[in-house]
Design a protein around this nucleic acid. Structure first.
Lengths: 178, 178
DNA sequence: TTCCGCATGTAAGTTGTTACATGATTGA
DNA sequence: TCAATCATGTAACAACTTACATGCGGAA
């Protein structure tokens, strides 16, 4: 049910079309809650049916501009403050770790080294975006910066962990067993 | 497609029934890749159809014991070493952060304080499990300990971040605006 | 003998992905 | 005029969730 709230959150900033929302998802929410075009259009229909958003303007090429309603804003606030976030997250990266005993220790180390490298790349990417945005004042709200900080800390943590883990494996070179 | 690999990974340790797998998921994989009973049974059927596992014994109450095949093991190893892990993870916790500007700053701070508290609880839970397991020797493989360490570091990071962020908000008490 | 745990399976519904399909407008 | 972008929608499929349905076997 988070897709609908992501859409309400974007519409809380101002009216937008399905196409606008797609672009907004791509540039600002792609790392947190990716959404496809077909998902957005069908969900927009449902949101309009339940009165959480409504069409406020029609433009060229069949463009329909939607705005959040009072009910929509109330629902968004309810979701933010009263609905407990999901703690469970699936991670196929971590799932592989559980099964590293089925491959050669050297492959296991390589896997972890690759994770460390991926974390570095991710961290660099975020740092670059932050720099870029620092120029334009206020381009990112306080909350945008807080989310960005999460990403930076997460990728730093992952890098350190993966490097530590790769070392850890080297300490007992047993054949793939179990 | 990770569910099938999670199942192959568990079967790589030894034969098991659908029921056994369900228990294994609950106790060891629930935080990394949750699965429901109906998912497991239908996926077992598909795995058997494609020859990645096979029935090796039948027991009381219609029990069917499955074992991984050579093809299954090859597929598992291929997935571990050659398939790039998904970088995108959905986080409704972080999604809410993006929209905290729609609620009162005090509610936003409360949200972040709650995240910090949840992280502490999670960290304590993991630390307890680690202690408990340390008693029984070898109950957790090297790789199990590495995964556990990820959880500990992740929850520690999240706690620190949430506390930092809650402070950050206090520094500019603006009304809820866009 | 009765209850709990073992054990399997199906159905319906939701969410998410990929692909198909179509067409209008605008700027070069 | 022609290509890129704007713009919407549908269909088919895959993954996941929740609920329903049934019945055996073993231990107290």
């Amino acid at each position: 049910m988070s897709l609908r709230h992501a859409m309400l959150g974007l519409l809380a900033r101002g009216p937008a079309s399905g196409y606008d929302l797609l672009k907004l998802f791509e540039i600002s929410l792609s790392n947190v809650w990716p959404a496809t075009q077909s998902q957005l259009y069908s969900e927009l229909g449902r949101l309009a049916d339940t009165g959480l958003v409504k069409v406020v303007a029609e433009g060229p090429r069949g463009r329909k501009e939607y705005a959040i309603t009072d009910e929509g804003l109330a629902e968004l606030r309810h979701w933010i403050t009263e609905v407990e976030p999901n703690r469970s997250r699936r991670s196929d990266m971590l799932l592989r770790v559980f099964f590293l005993n089925t491959v050669e220790p050297e492959q296991a180390r390589q896997y972890l080294r690759d994770r460390a490298a991926a974390a570095v790349t991710q961290h660099e990417g975020l740092a670059k975006i932050r720099e870029f945005i620092a120029d334009e004042q206020d381009a990112l709200s306080v909350y945008g910066r807080i989310a960005m900080e999460w990403g930076l800390r997460f990728s730093a943590m992952q890098q350190e962990w993966a490097e530590w883990a790769a070392e850890e494996i080297g300490r007992l070179p047993s054949p793939p067993s179990d």
